[in-house]
Amino acid sequence: MGASFIVEFKKLYKRPATWVVGLIFLALIVLFSYVLPYVVISSLQGRANIPQQFPPNLLPKNFVVTVLGQFGGGFGSALVLILGVLSVGSEYSWQTFKLALTQRPGRLPFLGGKLLAVGAVLAILTVLAFAVGAITSYIISALHGSSSGWPAFGEILKGLGAAWLILATFAALGFFLATLFRGSALAIGLGLVYTLVLESLFLRIASFQSETVAKISKALPVRNATDLASHFGSSQQAAQISNLPAGLKPIAASHAALVLIAYVVVFLAISLLLFRWRDVT
């Protein structure tokens, strides 16, 4: 599996799509979490009916929750879903599985190496996202002359773990869909429709006091990802990140983490089984 991991990591590192997805993710964090809110706040300053308090989300001490807000409910999940799809789906469209599988490693070690490499790229992306968030929040607070205190180190570590788990869940969903459909197009299409549209529609229905629908919604990946992210901030920030319809309460962090881990395990296990048993045509 070691050789497969090195090869797969090299392939991801050299692939322009990886860089495009990663750089867009980082740029969107800077833009939507910091620059745009700061520009809006700056332009509203001095108006009589607008509160003059500097938004706490832009301060370095809150960068963990601010950055995490873009992972689950934001575009992070959609972007890494694309990355997960491409890591498998392109091999089908380029027919490169037949190249890899006629060498030595065997199917499961080969796919295992691929999974580890995607996991490593997600870890790097998570650290970079946190670093970009920290640096941007520091610059903005310096420009505004606000406090530049940092969150506790343990909080940052927990945040990194949660962020990686959220990304891993959606990358695993992409991996599973691409393996199921043996290609990228349908997997990306369906994955994005689910992540960006279907689940939020479902949550709107859940808000109509249906107990059954509300229970089901507690097992859904996007909701668990956003609720996990929301636990890193104050209740006000949590409400902003979760953006739950009225009547729904955030899921406990431990429950959300367990649900996401279960999704990763199930998606990857089914992908491995499908890949192990299907013919490569």
């Binding site: 692939r15 490169t96 190249l99 060498q103 030595r104």
Partner: peptide
């Protein structure tokens, strides 16, 4: 066993050398 089945398949964004390096590492 070395093989080429139907049309050759490689990673389009890698160079010829990098593609062979991928294969060489996979076959150890």
């Amino acid at each position: 066993v070395g093989s080429v089945v139907e049309s050759p398949a490689f990673y389009p964004y890698l160079s010829g050398r990098d593609n062979l390096d991928v294969v060489a590492r996979l076959c150890g």
